[in-house]
Design a protein around this nucleic acid. Structure first.
Length: 435
RNA sequence: GCGGUAGUGGUGAAGUGGUUAACACACUGGUUUGUGGAUCCAGCAUGCGAGGGUUCGAUCCCCUUCUACCGCCCCA
């Protein structure tokens, strides 16, 4: 240990053994549900030009100014590890001309993978974290908003997540938003001195942010603030009403949260977050967030194309599922464990294991030259259903013993006729157990 | 980026300025030599995150650093 040792980079994690089971289940479930909704997977690079992200997120946002994991490559290009998924997907959408006539509209796609943010790790927050996200381009229909929201909810439901809450809000279109922003400033300015220091800064940079301040005094002031609903254009109002109507029809529970804001500039109209009301997980309450956006595709050189999407944090999801005890996943036990006695039987044992695997069974054997007793202990720990014992005797007779680890019963099996006998032998042993 | 707490074996952990760093779990071996989950026995940290310093002597005191965790900012 005095040797130089390596540690994983700050804010990253190694996942193995029991832990990956949850990841596999979540990813599998996402693929399954999303494909049912007509979303196909897209895989984009993990790093892109720094400008791609700074352009999409806005130069003043925290993500760009202090959280970007950026570097200069050997060609002196300013690159960044993707802090979120949307920018890369939009870039790919434009670059590959997925807006073309041969592609379905809306173009519905999903992605999953690691994202990076250079920040201080803490509860449910890492430098490398993972998101599963969805984007749909080319439709402004409110039914699409409803579909996307429904899909997240169904996905999380399918994992057994409890205490879910969909918070819904609208930011209106450009004009609504600009008008509201001004109204908010007009309202807050006279209170500026009473606001918390953080909110005073927010008032300058992004007044909407003041709305979801955690400061108690701020919250009191905010209560008297005008709401976006008074500044919504007819179109935005109609859109929002339609979304709510569809969600009602679909039986999706939601709550209007006028204080909810999304950080990035390109959001408009519907925005939503999926959170948990589980009080034990305040630090990781929001699991998914998303909404409608416009202007992004044009920003990257594509035709004017509206988009809607969401991203969800896998680590947070897992933390939640774990807290709610929904991840009692077990690696499945072995079908066969092969115990061999002595070196002479090793070749036959390996051969037999391979044959069983070819037949579709899971099988494993000892590679440490341990005693039969120890091998049986291992078989037990591995939850092997059957143990086949192979020693000199078996090598000579070409007949092995198959032991049912549940009943303790043993049966003989001819190796030469294993293909035909194996099922019968298993059935016979299992049948005895049922008696 | 700022503030706080912590860092002992595979795991959970006790511990003290000074001979062999508790205990438990796990693991390995054994309990008459080719058969499991119980019991019992035995083994299992030349080292207490790393690097310096104080001291006759430090895992225990000081400094630096790394990492984890908590809070702020922000967010998934």
């Amino acid at each position: 240990m005095a040797k130089a040792t390596f540690q994983k980079p700050k804010g990253t994690a190694d996942l193995y053994g029991q832990n990956v089971l949850a990841w596999q289940k979540i990813e599998q479930q996402a693929r399954l549900i999303f494909s049912r909704y007509g979303y196909g997977e897209i895989r984009t690079p993990i790093f892109e030009s720094f400008d791609l992200f700074s352009r999409s997120a806005g130069d003043t946002s925290d993500v760009v100014t202090k959280e970007m994991y950026d570097f200069f490559d050997k060609g002196d290009r300013h690159m960044a590890l993707r802090p979120e998924g949307t920018a890369g997907v939009v870039r790919a959408f434009v670059e590959n001309k997925l807006f073309g006539p041969e592609h379905e509209k809306p173009y519905k796609t999903f992605y999953m993978g690691p994202m990076f943010r250079y920040e201080r790790p803490q509860a449910g927050r890492f430098r490398q974290f993972h998101q599963i996200g969805v984007e749909a381009f080319g439709s402004t229909e409110p039914s699409l908003d409803a579909e996307v929201i429904t899909m997240v909810v169904k996905f999380l439901d399918s994992l057994g997540l409890k205490d879910l809450k969909v918070a819904l809000n609208t930011l209106g279109d450009q004009e609504s938003r600009a008008a509201y922003r001004q109204a908010l400033i007009d309202y807050l300015k006279p209170h500026e001195a009473e606001l918390s220091k953080d909110s005073q800064v927010r008032l300058e940079k992004n007044p909407l942010r003041v709305l979801d301040s955690k400061d108690k005094n701020d919250q009191v002031i905010v209560q008297g603030a005008p709401t976006i609903f008074d500044y919504l254009s007819e179109e935005s109002k109609a859109h929002f009403e339609a979304v709510k109507g569809f969600l009602n029809d679909l039986g999706i529970q939601y709550e209007i949260d006028p204080a909810m804001v999304r950080g990035l500039d390109y959001y408009n109209n519907t925005i939503f977050e999926v959170m948990t009301t589980d009080p034990d997980l305040k630090g990781a309450a929001t699991i998914a967030g998303g909404g409608r956006y416009s202007g992004l595709v044009e920003e990257f050189g594509g035709p004017e194309t509206p988009g809607i999407g969401f991203g969800l944090g896998v680590e947070r999801l897992i933390a939640l599922l774990t807290a709610q005890n929904q991840l009692n996943l077990k690696a499945s036990g072995l079908d066969f464990y092969l115990a061999h006695i002595g070196d002479a039987s090793q070749a036959l044992t390996l051969e037999l294991a391979t044959k069983l695997r070819d037949l579709g069974f899971s099988a494993d054997l000892d590679f440490a030259g341990r005693s039969v007793k120890a091998q049986f202990k291992t078989a037990n720990r591995r939850q092997a259903r059957f143990v086949i014992t192979i020693g000199d005797e078996e090598v000579a007779t070409k007949q092995v013993k198959v032991k049912d680890m549940v009943t303790g019963k043993q049966a003989a099996m001819d190796l030469s006729k294993m293909d035909e006998q194996i099922e019968d032998v298993m059935a016979e042993l299992v049948a005895e157990e049922a008696e």
